[in-house]
Amino acid sequence: MSGLPPEYLVYPHRRRGLDHDFYTHRNLAEAPRVAWPGGKPLALWVAVQAGHFPMDMGNKPFPMPGGTERPYPSYWDYTQRDYGNRIGIFRLIRALAARGVPATAFLSAVLAQRYPLLLRHIREAGWEVAAGGLDMGRPHHGGLPEAEERAMIREALDLLAGPDGARPKGWHSPGFSESMNTLPLLAEAGLSYVADWVNDDLPYPVTTKSGGLLAMPISWDMSDQRMLAQQHMATGDWVESVRRTMAVLRAEAEAAGGGRVLCLTITPWVMGQPHRIAALGALLDEILADGAVWPATGEAIAAHWQAQTG
């Protein structure tokens, strides 16, 4: 057997720290101690993934989580997801509003064009309008030319600009997928934070040749789409995982003297189903019961973190 090419045993990035320069390695214990408003141990961040899944999206260059699973034309997949933007999200809005909890909506930008009424309702609910790419069929990935990706980001931010011209501060790429250019392009486009890297329970700084960003700790492994849609787990399993997460983060915050972020990543077509929405409400009641959390948008959490950590 001739073996693999010699470069297979060459390790160009074997060194102290990470094998890239987007951020530095940090141990949880060394994270800055940030006090949330009111001295609450936890910031509660509800991150809503409001995606548009085109019926002809296909599965290239990789199958999009939550994307079309059946042969074209899958009315099943398309309409089940579209339900989220017609019905499900209104249940989420109502459940959160009843409890005074704001949310960040990571929106497929084409929704602003397709469903301007949806955007109006989201803004009226006081949710943060953040960018979730153009749509779920147009992922950012390593095969994308830089100029094309730059144009995609600009178009998404233009589409999501508010009536006052305000552009989103936060970004979440479809399917948590990026190219090597995504972070610099997001910084170049003037975004403040990005929620794609699921490697921390607290924010951390990202540096790029075009400026800095804050990486926000969005949850993926505990998101409703992964657990309930992809992994076929029960609603109660998600609730229990959130409970367990809150207990650990709260104990750590109280022991370490620095706030933690409890992120609930939820999806209108998943959590907004009639059979699930009551469980979300009950869970929020439990989370809010003894005043341990500061419910906030991603933008507010990021701004607060930046202000205290410089």
Partner: peptide, 17 residues
Amino acid sequence: PIPDVLGYSHRDYGNRV
């Protein structure tokens, strides 16, 4: 396709946190 940010960062969580 590289970079698989989701797969990479999920595992990076282990070393950071």
